[in-house]
Simulated scan of single mutants.
Amino acid sequence: MFKNKIIRLVITILFLSLLSCKKETFPKPSGYLNLEYPEAEYVHFKNQCPFEFDMNSQAVIKGGNECDFTVTYPKMKATIYLTYKPVQNNITKLLKDAQKLTYEHVIKADDILEQPFMNPNKKVYGMFYRVNGNAATNSQFYVTDSVKNFITGSVYFYAKPNFDSVMPASSYVQNDMQRLMETIQWK
């Protein structure tokens, strides 16, 4: 009787081990995220505001109050916020406010690169900021004619600021934002 129990146990173990045998598993190699975006095609935006510019045809523009806009990239969960202010003997204050807004990100930023912009033919002068690191925004700019018009722009992603994760989308939108800034014309 004891011998029969041992034989049954051995047969059960052999039977279960044969059923549990499957193909050998191997660890999968590391994968890399491959984000590809369409090549940017630009369209000219113009309305009743005292300025016009080129923007990516993939983006959606929405008007806010008066001449403030959002340029949204739905597939990338990114938005460029454009704010227009008339210059009324307050150019120094407008410049300080724009610079202050950028340098508030210095706490989380690894580096802030300033790129001056001048287009004397169209009387457009300003600064483009590239903010590197885990800051809330990775790009900002301001442009002015120093007499009548002042525009600020900043880009935000609807995701936790992790520079490595949003870098491909960030670079794409950053290039669009710089193109937008460089094509601003006053009416």
Rank of each mutant, 00 (worst) to 15 (best):
N47R: 11
Y42V: 03
P116Y: 11
D110Q: 14
A109V: 09
A40H: 12
Y125F: 14
E52W: 08
P116S: 11
T102E: 01
E66S: 11
Q99Y: 01
F128W: 12
N119D: 14
A109S: 11
F53S: 09
K108R: 13
N47G: 07
E114C: 01
T72C: 04
G64Y: 06
T144A: 03
I112F: 02
E114R: 07
A59W: 06
N121A: 11
C67G: 01
E41P: 00
V71H: 08
M127A: 04
A59T: 07
A136C: 02
G63M: 14
E66M: 09
Q58P: 00
M127V: 15
V43I: 13
D110F: 03
K85C: 10
L113F: 09
Y42G: 10
M76I: 01
A135W: 07
K123S: 09
M127G: 04
T72H: 12
K123T: 02
S139E: 12
I80W: 01
D97C: 04
K93W: 03
T102L: 00
A78R: 08
T83I: 05
N65D: 14
N138H: 11
D68P: 03
S146R: 07
C67W: 07
I61Q: 11
Q88E: 13
Y142Q: 02
V87S: 06
D68Y: 06
P120M: 01
V43P: 01
V60T: 14
Q58S: 12
Y42F: 15
T79K: 05
G126V: 09
S146N: 13
Y125I: 02
V71F: 00
N65I: 11
C67K: 02
L113G: 06
T102N: 10
N132H: 15
V124P: 00
V71T: 01
E104H: 10
A135T: 13
D68M: 03
V87G: 06
T144C: 06
